[in-house]
């Protein structure tokens, strides 16, 4: 190992990310090279002070995080406010919500409310997509084999989502997982397109709709369609035309 190679690996070594063989080479080099040894000391010298720069959560924040008004499905949070106070707060909120709904209903009709429900769903779908990427939790069952992925859902959800590998169309199946949208479990299938991923969410629905673009959310495209008793939402960072192509490929594969 020469000086140049050692300098490239000095961070990995200091972070304990170097395999044993290269660690041995690395140590052999710095034992005889003062300037590389100094480079390692410099990286290590910063570590304690950086660690010491940690900001612990203020105590009152800890308390207030526990004080959610209510969960989405109305379950009370424990801790925080006394129960009576929380109930009063939630009645007040409910009253306001009803008043707001009446006013909205009076002026703009329920189309607005429907639209905002749809908007919430799109936001949830986008969150689910982002979370699956960010937490690197794309699949509970990682397999490109539809005959492995399809039975995995049995007993986990009360419907049988259609699963198709679309590798020949350029969208290989990565796997499947359970996801929660609007408080109920749905099937999520994950497909890959080059370096990008498509999350396809499936649940039972009776409206038949053509493949259509939904409003993009935070830079992610969403395509929605429904047929044969199932509703589909596909979300991805790939372009809208590509995502529509994915939807067509999926539908075509199903009909064969």
């Amino acid at each position: 190992m020469n000086c140049e190679e050692v300098r490239e690996l000095v961070h990995a070594y200091a972070d304990g990310e170097l395999d044993v063989a290269r660690s041995v080479d690395f140590e052999r080099h710095i034992a005889n090279c003062e300037s590389c040894a100094a480079a390692l000391r410099n990286v290590r010298a910063l570590k304690p002070a950086i660690r010491g720069s940690y900001y612990a959560a203020p105590d009152d924040l800890r308390a207030s995080v526990l004080r959610f008004p209510s969960s989405p499905d109305g379950v009370r949070q424990s801790g925080g406010l006394p129960a009576a106070e929380r109930r009063a707060g939630s009645w007040l909120l409910t009253g306001l919500a009803i008043a707001a709904a009446l006013i909205l209903g009076f002026f703009v009709g329920d189309a607005f409310l429907r639209r905002s429900a749809n908007q919430n769903l799109l936001a949830e779908i986008t969150d689910a997509h982002v979370r699956s990427l960010a937490a690197n939790h794309l699949a509970d069952v990682a397999s490109s084999d539809q005959h492995t992925v399809r039975p995995w859902f049995e007993g986990k959800i009360d419907f049988a989502p259609p699963v198709e590998d679309l590798a020949t169309a350029g969208f290989p199946l990565v796997g499947g997982r359970l996801e929660y949208l609007r408080g109920r479990p749905v099937a999520a299938l994950v497909y890959q397109r080059r370096k990008h991923f498509v999350n396809l969410f499936i649940w039972p629905g009776d409206h038949v709709t053509e493949i259509r673009d939904e409003k993009p959310q935070r830079g992610y495209n969403i395509v929605h369609w429904a047929n044969d008793g199932m509703t589909y939402f596909a979300v991805s960072e790939i372009s809208a035309p590509e995502l529509r192509q994915f939807a067509r490929d999926f539908t075509t594969a199903l009909s064969h």
Binding site: A57, L61, V65, S71, R131, A135, R177, Y180, G183
Partner: peptide, 18 residues
Amino acid sequence: VQEAALRAFKFFGGFRGG
């Protein structure tokens, strides 16, 4: 943190361990 905690709570059903 407040907002993230709310979102975490909302999506906790989707947290599959790990």
